[in-house]
Write a protein that binds this DNA or RNA. Structure first.
Length: 395
DNA sequence: TCTGGGGTCCTAGGACCC
DNA sequence: TCTGGGGTCCTAGGACCC
């Protein structure tokens, strides 16, 4: 028995949040986004879209297209509040909810919909319930796996409900332009088009005839896509996943292109302390520090350094980032700097990298020390010892 | 005022160990 | 001896998503 998976997508979420704050914005051309030298449109209202404004578009271009565009700065704190209300609402139907981003989630509605004679009617009430609680609009895709549910929620906006059944999903999915397929971006779409693939249906034909060019082009992703275009795919909703964040990074476009080393120092310091603050908030330490540089030609470069003892200390991160910069900077004008901490370890089961002779950083507890010493002697090589394991065994 | 900032996953090569 | 593989970790870059 296949599952019933839904994908729920909040329509023009950031702008909708601004409308909730200030209802006079409704029906106006509104864009949310930064308005600095590197500003782009994050989200825009449907009215703005009529003028050709799109998300991702440079703000100055959006203004060219729509001179009376109302621009609102991003207010993540407020959006976060509404986002949580949205998830809580979905959770009131089932606990099997997977948050995909601030404005979308997947949910396993098998139990919710299995005895429902009128699923469309039910989902309309669901939408109305969400609106009554939060004033948010959503589109819903319903199918047997996450991919089709996602494509479904994208099919009709705003307030759409699209059900993709095994017997008829092809009718809806196959005519869709290949560039609008989830997972196919602006690099792969033209490559596929160069093989005559215009739609998802074309891609399905090629894949089901075992086309080697497409196989090579997509790599491992080929097998996922093969499932997708044939109506199969991942239907696991990760609702109590213990997965946590894998990297914490921040970057900034400089006020002006610069080769001023002192300015770089100051910016890196600020970025490093921001990363440190967030790592501490997440109770994470990291072993890899990555410096990102983007030059005036938009060429990005990353240089990474992995250290022995994980850290989330601002000065540590700053100094490592500076080390990397010193090693690789060649005096070019730069546009953007970034610092990322990865290889993260949770503080509560912090791994203490130790050798037989080096356990200065060990917990002060003497029992732990003895135990670690003993383990290392028996293994006679460096090893990872988790404090949580030690505590268990030490009892 | 030309083109954000937060992430994830994949690939491919090299170092190193057994 | 002129030629191993398996496994892990690291680095750098690229593609994609929101």
């Amino acid at each position: 028995m296949s599952k019933i998976i839904v994908h729920i997508d909040l329509n023009y979420f950031f702008v909708r949040c601004e409308e909730i704050k200030d209802p006079t914005l409704q029906g106006q051309p509104v864009a949310v986004g930064h308005q600095g030298r590197a500003g782009i449109v994050s989200t825009c209202s449907y009215k703005a879209r009529e003028y050709g404004v799109k998300s991702g578009m440079p703000m100055f271009q959006a203004i060219e297209k729509c001179p009376n565009l109302i621009i609102k700065p991003v207010d993540f704190d407020f959006y976060g509040v509404l986002s949580r209300e949205f998830i809580l609402y979905v959770l009131s139907f089932t606990k099997k909810v997977e948050v995909a981003s601030v404005d979308e989630c997947y949910a396993d509605f098998s139990d919710v919909l299995k005895n429902e004679k009128d699923p469309i009617g039910f989902l309309k009430k669901f939408q109305k319930g969400l609106f009554d609680k939060t004033k948010l609009y959503c589109s819903i895709g319903v199918s047997t796996n996450k991919f089709l549910a996602k494509m479904g929620s994208d099919y009709k906006k705003p307030n759409g409900i699209t059900i993709l059944r095994q017997k008829d999903f092809k009718k809806i999915i196959y005519p869709i332009q290949i560039a609008n397929m989830y997972g196919i971006g602006k690099k792969t779409a033209p490559r596929l088009q160069s093989y005559g693939i215009k739609t998802i249906g074309d891609l399905a034909d090629k894949i089901n005839s075992d086309d080697n060019d497409i196989k090579n082009l997509l790599g491992k992703f080929y097998f996922t896509v093969k499932d997708w275009v044939n109506g199969k795919g991942d239907d696991e909703i990760k609702y109590d996943s213990d997965e946590s964040v894998k990297s914490i990074g921040t970057s900034t476009t400089l006020p002006n292109d610069s080769n001023d080393y002192e300015e770089f120092r100051n910016v890196l310091k600020m970025l490093s302390f921001d990363v440190s603050r967030r790592a501490k908030k997440e109770n994470k330490l990291g072993k890899t520090i990555t410096l990102t540089l983007k030059d005036t030609n938009f060429i990005s470069q990353t240089k990474a350094l992995t250290i022995k003892n994980p850290t989330n200390n601002g000065n540590d991160i700053f100094n490592y980032a500076l080390d990397i910069l010193e090693k690789c900077y060649d005096g070019r004008l730069m546009r953007l700097l970034g610092v990322t901490l990865s290889n993260l370890i949770d503080i509560k089961d912090i791994a203490i990298q130790m050798t037989f002779f080096d356990y200065k950083d060990a917990e002060e507890d003497s029992k732990t020390k003895l135990l670690i010493n003993d383990l290392n002697r028996r293994l006679s090589k460096p090893m990872l010892i988790r404090a949580s394991q030690i505590n268990k065994k030490g009892e």
